[in-house]
Amino acid sequence: MTQIVRTPHEGPRAASAKRPGRSAVSRRSVTLITGCVLSGMILLLALVSLFWTPYAPDDTSGGRLTGPGAGHLLGTDKLGRDLFTQLMTGSRIAVEAGLGSVLIAAVAGVTLGVLAAFAQGWLDDTLSAFLDILIAFPTLLLAMLIVAARSATLGSAVLAIGLAQSAVVARVVRILVKRVLAQDYITAARTSGTSWPRIVAGHVLPNIWPTLVVNLALQFGLAVLAEAGLSYLGLGAPPPNASWGRMLQEAQATFTTAPAGALAPGVLLVLLVIGVNLVADGLRDTLDPATGRRRS
């Protein structure tokens, strides 16, 4: 009676049978590596710009609109400032804008989203309505309000973008948390006497994390684009801090004669956004041990 006969079903399985095939692994790492290289390149530019740039950002000694050449790698703008230098400081602004906004969006969004998921009745309705209004409110308008109330700085732009994005993040988090809370393992954790705060920290957040990270990376890309848009309109970082958005706007008039001024920041903007999205995609697969199984 006490002797337990072990059936073949319960024997340890060959680990390889449960792992995704070789091709799936390599495709996944290609995505991750490409993304890391692209965003890493720009991160490197941003980091180096903290210590060294070829010229001072406001050095106008280069002569107006010189083309790419030995003295100036990408040429100069219409005020004679080195384009590559501006591109480097611009990448720092872009990374700062992305990280800052995502940080605000993550902290405010996750908090609001978890609260909304636990809220019931009128509180749930109120929170959801509030989030919907915030989402419907154009980021640009919010940014203009904040800039009017404070001043046109990178901080104002980041605050505006972060707040607008926190509503989007909160709505995603609310749904994700609700879905996790309906799972049996939450009930199982509760039957063993685990308190709600511990369940949220130990089970809910780790389980929404893979999806959340992908969403936050997406938000990072969108924040970089939004900051460029705000700078283009003169609502972002003030001169002499070159931002890619303002570079685009300044180079617009001379695009036919000196296309490098507009092309360079445009290309970097696209590369950064794509790079971050690829990193997100690769990360999702590596963070979720079950995804690999489902895909194989």
Partner: peptide, 8 residues
């Protein structure tokens, strides 16, 4: 399967 946290 569902009674165990898949990520822990």
């Amino acid at each position: 399967l569902t009674a165990l946290d898949p990520l822990m």
